[in-house]
Design a protein around this nucleic acid. Structure first.
Lengths: 343, 343
DNA sequence: TTCTCTACTGTGAACGCTCACAGAAGCATG
DNA sequence: CATGCTTCTGTGAGCGTTCACAGTAGAGAA
């Protein structure tokens, strides 16, 4: 039945073959394939049997040609690849999206727009309708690709709240502000008095929101905002190290640090240990992300888990809804405090 | 010219529009699109101008429908995802393949076959001709997917030498044996007398070859093979730790260890330090992979770099050649010794 | 002139599918 | 008996491209 000649691939069965085999017309087979409405149970059965017998698989190109849909989705990374592509969270996101799409039988096309040339080529590809929608990973503000795609009416869902784009773009993000609040509250609940912070880059929504959460909780606790306690980093390990050194110099009495990413927190831990401060006895350290870096750190890093698995499934859900004609939507997902040894 | 109504996407220009605009026939436009043979310079010029003016982009579905090609390639991961998808090298490989394919204007479809269901779905998808070929990442022996695809005549290139498949399957791999030889020679050149090894899993080609290289060099050096000096691991950090402990117990006079992966080497370093051995003074440690783990280790890990960027471009080259009708080919790429502080 | 060869061009006919439409059959209602 | 409604089925057209084929024009040779 499935004998395959070694030489050339056999011409695969078409909808016509199935129709003949089942004793019905092409139209009926097509209707069964597309949900089975207005098809008698008998015909339904006969068609399904014929499909099994012939090993028929729909020719997506022929279908797409007439429907105008491609039934595929692009996963577009415009981020500088050093920052994101090597982030383990990115893998979780990519895997989650792939699997969520697979459940709908929709293939994922991976698109990396590093150079200007690639940007142009990919934009062209997308706006030409070769994908039905785009899952976008791009946190830097005013991304030209995102604007172009939105302008061309391409369904689009961003990972993280895009800065500087109109409100008409969908996005799925973790609740950065609330996560930051949780962490700072946790540090205060341990009796810490002088809580410093190493922020992320302040031209990204995550950077801004996490700082805002920190400020809110301190204000609620009745503490005046002390700008000596805040330094800004760029999510890199090195910037965490530098940030911690600066904090120690400006406020030697510091007894806790909230760091806006786990990788930076690794740097903070190194700098603290070098300065002879014990963690968590002298200084408690809280990170953000719950990346593998948090587990690898010593001591194990207390951090805020971003729900990457849910982010991916939500991105897919929102995108498919938008492809189906619904309006853009924003989804904010809750974070979770993960306690380890560093606090 | 490019004004896009907010509401619905405009019907994109077809080859027909271009032909009318250029004052030639569809056939001529098609010929220009496909390499421009048998087209007069004047027509060539007119068509290109018309394409620019109209913003025409070929409809790949229509093309695929008639050519039978999809002009796309699948990137298939059948590996248990814990082992590979979280390996940073995987990212380098995936990125390299995506970019190499992009240079040929070929999209990459990401396919993850974790469960049995996914396997079946993906196999069906591929054998139905929805992709022209497959880049396969799968190191465990006798992968049923690989066999099925080869049996169906799907062009296929594996990353790493597949075990148990006939010789008819293409693959691209680093020269594991030679890399291992380099490392062991390096350890001997430092004057080390008792060189142990922690191997990878011996049901993978990498595991087998690296062990073979180790044995060869020791034999060449006139040392009898001492099986107490060899323990086997599974590429995990924990197995490196356990392996080192076993080595120390069986051969306390050991003064160097060749570890078949950087992650395991991290475990080895931890175990050695816990046992009070200084690295590299008392025991020199060499890894394999040159993954980020090698840099993150302390002391920095001397290791064998696998040329992941070249592996990806070669995989794409071999796959495209095979799609073009050439015979399967095997490519072995040289590795490189990277010296750091651990030796 | 006539023939052949090369370089180029245009024209149907497909590729496999979905969609709109027309029509048939069954059943209830007037 | 006609009429209308619902449920189901078959048919032709067409999506945008490539491909095979036929045909034209011009150059060179017989």
């Amino acid at each position: 039945m499935t004998m395959n000649a070694a030489g050339g691939r056999r011409r695969p069965p078409t909808i016509h073959d199935v129709a003949r085999e089942a004793g019905v017309s092409r139209g009926t087979v097509s209707r069964v394939l597309n949900g089975g409405h207005y098809v008698s149970p008998a015909a339904q059965e006969a068609v399904n049997a014929a499909i099994r017998r012939t090993g028929y698989v729909v020719n997506r190109h022929a279908r797409s040609l007439i429907t105008g849909r491609s039934d595929s989705v692009g996963f577009l990374l415009t981020e500088p690849q050093e920052r994101f592509f090597e982030d383990p969270n990115f893998n979780v996101l990519l895997r989650g999206c792939t699997q969520a799409l697979a459940a709908h039988d929709i293939p994922l096309l991976l698109m990396l727009a590093g150079t200007e040339d690639e940007r142009r080529r990919i934009t062209r590809y997308i706006t030409a309708g070769h994908v039905d929608g785009v899952l976008l990973v791009s946190s830097h503000s005013g991304d030209p690709v995102a604007e172009q795609l939105r302008g061309a009416g391409v369904p689009l869902v961003a990972c993280g709240k895009p800065i500087g784009l109109g409100s008409k773009v969908s996005y799925v993000a973790a609740d950065d502000r609330d996560g930051a609040r949780d962490m700072v509250r946790h540090l205060l609940s341990l009796g810490r008095q002088r809580v410093g912070m190493v922020t992320g880059p302040l031209d990204t929504p995550g950077g801004v929101e996490r700082l805002a959460g920190y400020k809110e909780v301190l204000a609620d606790a009745g503490a005046a905002f002390d700008e000596r306690l805040v330094v800004s980093g760029d999510y890199s390990r090195a910037s965490g190290e530098a940030g911690a050194e600066m904090l120690l110099a400006r406020a030697p009495d510091i007894d806790a640090v909230f760091v806006a990413s786990d990788l930076m927190a690794q740097g903070v831990l190194a700098a603290l240990q070098r300065a002879g401060r014990r963690v968590p006895q002298d200084v408690a350290v809280g990170g953000f992300d719950d990346s593998p870096a948090a587990l690898a750190a010593s001591p194990g890093l207390t951090t805020i888990r971003q729900p990457w698995d849910r982010i991916s499934t939500e991105m897919v859900r929102v995108l498919l809804a938008q492809i189906g004609g619904e309006d853009p939507a924003a989804v904010i997902l809750p974070t979770e405090l993960v306690k380890r040894e560093s606090t």
